[in-house]
Design a protein around this nucleic acid. Structure first.
Length: 216
DNA sequence: CCCCAGGCGTCCA
DNA sequence: TGGACGCATGGG
């Protein structure tokens, strides 16, 4: 079967089994960005606590974070883990956001340029940059993460040494270029990954994608 | 007690 | 260029 058909079928089966995921859970583009940095290698539940702390203190703005005291910021985001790194990363990100002219400038920027800009920020790698592009700025970019890799690997759709860009291009060159669908697809992969594609379930037993690539 | 989570930068060969 | 390692809290 053609890869394009398999990817399409995966999407339909996940959507049918799990329904819409309503990602990204945030009220503003800036909140998406903060969440994207805080969730690096961290459970989302812990990130929610950190974001709620920032909101409660009126700190969820680029200006407030950029000019915040490092120790105080650390305390507020502590539940999200790696908080010393992440506090510095948030401050760097916010300075960048302000320097570049805020959300209006960012909205006008070409997607390729915006991606380069994001990747130039210390602490923003490919997944964080692409999450921001897709969920904060509605750009048609497919987000790849550890679950994406693991799920495709277990279904024998990729090689073990498949890197980020290659994996991303597999989706982007075989699926229609649709922002809403990209958002839903990534969210569904994460949910499937959490529930079924775990170490404790090495055969992905019970997964809605079971047998998606029956050719072994 | 263990393992891991919606990664990234650094270091070193 | 790529593999190991540190970063750290909270939930199972």
């Amino acid at each position: 079967m053609y890869l394009a058909n398999t990817l399409q079928k995966m999407y339909e089966q996940m959507l049918s089994a799990l329904g819409h995921q309503h990602w990204w859970p945030a009220e503003t583009p800036f909140e998406v960005c903060v969440g994207a940095i805080l969730t690096q290698n961290t459970n989302w539940k812990n990130v929610e606590k950190a974001i709620n702390n920032l909101k409660r203190e009126g700190m969820l703005t680029p200006e407030a974070i950029a000019s915040s005291d490092l120790e105080r910021l650390c305390e507020l985001i502590k539940p999200s883990g790696f908080y010393r790194q992440k506090a510095r990363r948030l401050i760097e990100f916010c300075k960048w956001w302000i320097d570049i002219g805020g959300i209006d400038s960012l909205n006008q920027m070409e997607t390729e340029r915006l991606r380069e800009e994001l990747l130039s920020i210390k602490g923003v790698g490919p997944e964080t940059a692409d999450s921001i592009l897709l969920y904060a700025f509605d750009r048609p970019i497919f987000v790849v993460d550890a679950y994406t890799y693991r799920i495709l690997l277990r279904h024998n759709l990729i090689d073990e040494d498949c890197d980020y860009e290659t994996l991303q291009s597999i989706f982007m060159s075989n699926l229609p270029c649709d922002v809403q669908m990209f958002k839903e697809y990534h969210a569904l992969l994460v949910e499937v990954g959490k529930r079924w594609c775990t170490k404790k379930n090495p055969k992905c037993k019970g997964c809605p994608l079971e047998g998606i690539n029956s050719v072994l």
